[in-house]
Structure formats: structure tokens, C-alpha cells
Design a protein around this nucleic acid. Structure first.
Length: 435
RNA sequence: GUGGCCGUAGCUCAGUUGGUUAGAGCGCCAGGUUGUGGCCCUGGAGGUCGGGGGUUCAAGUCCCCUCGGUCACCCCA
């Protein structure tokens, strides 16, 4: 065992297995970009206050925060999620609305790692500020759905719910609390003493005791005020109109308690592990104001990169591996040709690699083969003396010389317009690895 | 924070009731082919048996502690 290792709950994505990451991020970028969302980059750490506003009673804030006092005496925290940072940036910079942003990056939560759960994990997500139009909810939910579809992931369940707003949530909360208090003794041990703290949580409890009691509990969706009911109706109607299959899950209560009205989750039914939420989000019409900004409705989602990659492995569909090399230079005539040719071809837009350390021809050809390159460009003493390069097709074996000056042109012709599609693929054993 | 299972070469693993210099396959490097990969043959490099302590004439093997991994609870991405 090496002395120095990555910290618990973190991991390396090695060059040989980073293809799916790149594929996933570029797919997300183009999906969000096509809908008018633009990249936002915010700090990975913030003043701890940015995150405590997202809900003092949530586990994320209470016990999972990676916070510390820095050398300047500031109490900061590595972000446990990105939404709070985006809201902070929105308030700080006051952009004109509607304001639509997407992001990708690390998040940190101090928890015991397990399948699909890490201390540093990655999310991609979008946030849209300044509109309470239910059709924006539909756009956001659909974007996430389409993202999974574009990756070819099968078996995603879309769960939607409405948590109401300031007008109808308190009344419902009281109604639910009355119902639960009457059955308090039959709830699970955990919730028996915490009903008043957050009655909605009980609905989400997975224990048998609670489930039995909450089966007939009043539901928020049945107790929405007129405007929330109309909003939710428009959202579900929109999803139906766009043929996005969803299921109303009245017990869906998300972990961050800033959500209002629409909440949703993408559940991976293909995952064997118990962490099967691929992503989730909702509307948070009160958060901007709660964090000191102007009253501004907003909606967004976050999707877990690791879990989505797990889902890709589980469904057996993998993103196309990245293109490999066009050519690999084999030079055993001193190295000048390798040095010059790689530069020339790379500047011309080709993907080219070479060997170093003056290795034997055999070793260099072996390296060329392993690189997945389509052609080997061979320069030995004979070719060097004649100012030639031998182009060898690595899939077959035939080889013929061309003049040094004709190399680029000839190679381009042989590659067939140099399209990416002409590159050989390669299997990626790392695709089914976790993460 | 709590619990189950697991730590032997880069990877996947074997190692007999504790008993001599700890093995295999794959991978890597070299040679077979004075200049040619993918197949084959031969050879080589690579290990404080996660770490520490204990029991014993003797520990990879048994005991304790610790670190790490993994899965689950909780919660969530």
C-alpha cells in the first residue's frame, strides 16, 4: 500500500476511464445550451452562511457540512450543493431575469461512503430565475429527462409532487401534524419524538411502522390552494403533452427544505444499490428572498454524475468512447522525424502521438498498436536518407512510402477527409467500474 | 455516527492442521525477428503478505488494536 492515498470517499478517474465523464459532461452542456442555459462557475467554497440558509434542520447543514475556519479567520464551507451558491451569485450580481444557468462540479458532504455515495461527488444541474410560469417547471423537468434519454439510459422513473406554498403549506402541515399526533405511538422510534419538528419527513420514512400509519395520511397534493393546484395541473398537463412519462408521488419530500410547489426526482430503477436517486430538484420561490435578495421565483435540478455513470453501466449502454489517434509516429532514426512530424500533423488538426526514449522498432510498433492509432508513420534510417515516410495501416499491415513533403496530403486522403468517424473505436473496460 | 464482510505483485486471485528461498494468470519490460504491432515461445523486473503489537521454536495463516476498502442503516446526488 502506498503511503499517500486519496482521502476516504474520494476517487480518481484515470485517463483510461475518463471517456464516459467527458461524454456525459459534453452531452449535458449541449442539452442545457440548446435551451438557452449558459455555464455558471461559482467558488467551491463559500461563507458558511450561504449554505446554512438552505435549511437549518436538514442533515446536509446539521451534520454533513465540510466547514472550517481558514487562516484569515473566515468560517467557510466546501459546498454541499450548488443551488445556494448560484442564488448567492444571483443576489450579488442582480442579472436581468429570466436568468438561466447550468453548472458542473464537485460537492462535499461528510458522510460514510457507500455505493453511489461519496464525500466528494459531482453534479451537473440547471437553475432558472425570475419566472413562476409552470411551463418553466415543465422545461426544467423535461431537460433532465431528455438528458438521460440522450445518454441512452433506460429505466428512469420520473416522480413529481407539489409541496404547496406559503399560502397553503402551513394549513396542510397542521392537518398532517394532527393526523400524525393521533397515531404518534405507532410511528417508528426515530420519528416518534420528532413529529413536530418536520411532519413532512414522516411521509418519506421507509420504515414499516411509519408506512403503515402514513398510508392514509392527508396529502399535500389534495390540500393545495387554488393557485398551487392550478400550477401543478399545468405542470403535469405539460409533461403529458410532451410525452414525458411521470408519476405523481405524493410522499416525495426532498432533502433540502427550501422547495415550494413542484418537486421532482429521477429515480434509477436499474440500480441495485440503495442510493437510487439519479437526480432531483424543484421550485424554490422563497429562497432568493430568504437569502437577502428580491422576491424571485426560481426552479432547478441537480443530477449526480457518479450515479448516472452507475446507471449507464447497469443498463449496459455506454457513451461512445472518445476518438483515438489518427497516427502514431515510429522513428528509429534518431528522433528528428518524430519531433517534427508530430508537430506538423497536430497543427494540421490530426491526433498524433509517438514513442520516446529511443525504443526499439518492435517496442514502438507495439506502442503504436496499443494506442489504437489507425496508421503508423515509419521513419528508419532508409526513409530518413530518402526523405520519405512509410505509412503503415495498422489494421492490416500493408505499408508504402511517400515523400516527406506529401505526408500530410496523403495521410488526409487515406483517412477519408479526416473525419472523426474514420477513427477506430476502442472498448472501455472502465465503463462498468464504480464510479 | 452505528453495524456486516474484506485487505497477499500494477490487476484478478491461490497459499493444505501455523512449518524451509510467498505462487499463478493477465499486464509490463527484454530476447527469439542486425528495421515492424496484433498470435506464439523464452527470460526478466515487480511483494515491508495494509500497519502496529501479542501468542509460538516458528505467523500470510491464530489473537488484539489500528488504518483502508466495501455494503447497509440514516440521509441524499
Amino acid at each position: 500500500m502506498p503511503e499517500l492515498r486519496n482521502p476516504p470517499g474520494t476517487f480518481d478517474v484515470l485517463p483510461s476511464e475518463s471517456g464516459p465523464w467527458q461524454e456525459m459532461l459534453s452531452t449535458f452542456a449541449s442539452t442545457a445550451g440548446a435551451a438557452g442555459y449558459e455555464l455558471i462557475v461559482t467558488p467551491t467554497f463559500e461563507d458558511v452562511g450561504v449554505f446554512t440558509r438552505i435549511g437549518e434542520s436538514t442533515d446536509v447543514v446539521r451534520k454533513e457540512m465540510y466547514d472550517f475556519v481558514d487562516k484569515g479567520g473566515r468560517h467557510v464551507a466546501l459546498r454541499p450543493e450548488v443551488t445556494a451558491s448560484v442564488v448567492r451569485a444571483f443576489i450579488q450580481h442582480r442579472p436581468v431575469t429570466p436568468w438561466k444557468a447550468w453548472y458542473a462540479g464537485s460537492n462535499f458532504r461528510f458522510e460514510r461512503p457507500q455505493a453511489g455515495r461519496f464525500r466528494e461527488f459531482h453534479q451537473v444541474g440547471i437553475e432558472a430565475f425570475g419566472s413562476s410560469d409552470p411551463d418553466l417547471d415543465v422545461e426544467v423537468v423535461t431537460l433532465g429527462w431528455d438528458f438521460f434519454a440522450r445518454l441512452g439510459i433506460k429505466g428512469v422513473d420520473l416522480l413529481v409532487n407539489s409541496l404547496g406554498d406559503a399560502a397553503c403549506r402551513p394549513a396542510y402541515r397542521q392537518k398532517l401534524l394532527d393526523y400524525l399526533m393521533a397515531r404518534r405511538g405507532d410511528l417508528c422510534e426515530e420519528h416518534r419524538g420528532r413529529v413536530e419538528e418536520n411532519p413532512l419527513r414522516v411521509l418519506d420514512c421507509k420504515r414499516e411502522a411509519c408506512r403503515a400509519q402514513t398510508a392514509g395520511a392527508p396529502l399535500q397534493v389534495d390540500n393545495l390552494c387554488d393557485s398551487c393546484a392550478a400550477h401543478f395541473e399545468r405542470v403535469t398537463a405539460g409533461l403529458s403533452a410532451l410525452s414525458v412519462p411521470y408519476r405523481v408521488e405524493a410522499h416525495l419530500v426532498r432533502g433540502l427544505d427550501y422547495y415550494t410547489r413542484t418537486t421532482f426526482e429521477y429515480a434509477g430503477t436499474m440500480l441495485e444499490s440503495s442510493q437510487n436517486a439519479l437526480g432531483g430538484g424543484g421550485r424554490y420561490d422563497g429562497l432568493v428572498q430568504a437569502m437577502g435578495g428580491p422576491p424571485t421565483p426560481a426552479v432547478g435540478f441537480a443530477i449526480g454524475v457518479e450515479r448516472t455513470l452507475l446507471a449507464l453501466g447497469a443498463t449496459g449502454t455506454s457513451p461512445r468512447p472518445p476518438a483515438r489517434l489518427h497516427a502514431f509516429v515510429v522513428d528509429f532514426a534518431g528522433g528528428d522525424a518524430a519531433r517534427d512530424i508530430t508537430r506538423e500533423l497536430r497543427q494540421a488538426g490530426l491526433r498524433v502521438d509517438r514513442a520516446f526514449d529511443d525504443r526499439s522498432p518492435k517496442a514502438q510498433f507495439k506502442a503504436a498498436d496499443r494506442s489504437g492509432a489507425r496508421f503508423a508513420l515509419v521513419v528508419g534510417p532508409d526513409e530518413a536518407a530518402a526523405s520519405q515516410v512509410a505509412i503503415k495501416d495498422l489494421s492490416g499491415g500493408e505499408q508504402h512510402p511517400v515523400g516527406r513533403g506529401d505526408l500530410l496530403e496523403t495521410l488526409r486522403a487515406m483517412l477519408g477527409a479526416g473525419s472523426e468517424a474514420s477513427l477506430p473505436g476502442r472498448s472501455h473496460p472502465g465503463y462498468n467500474r464504480t464510479p
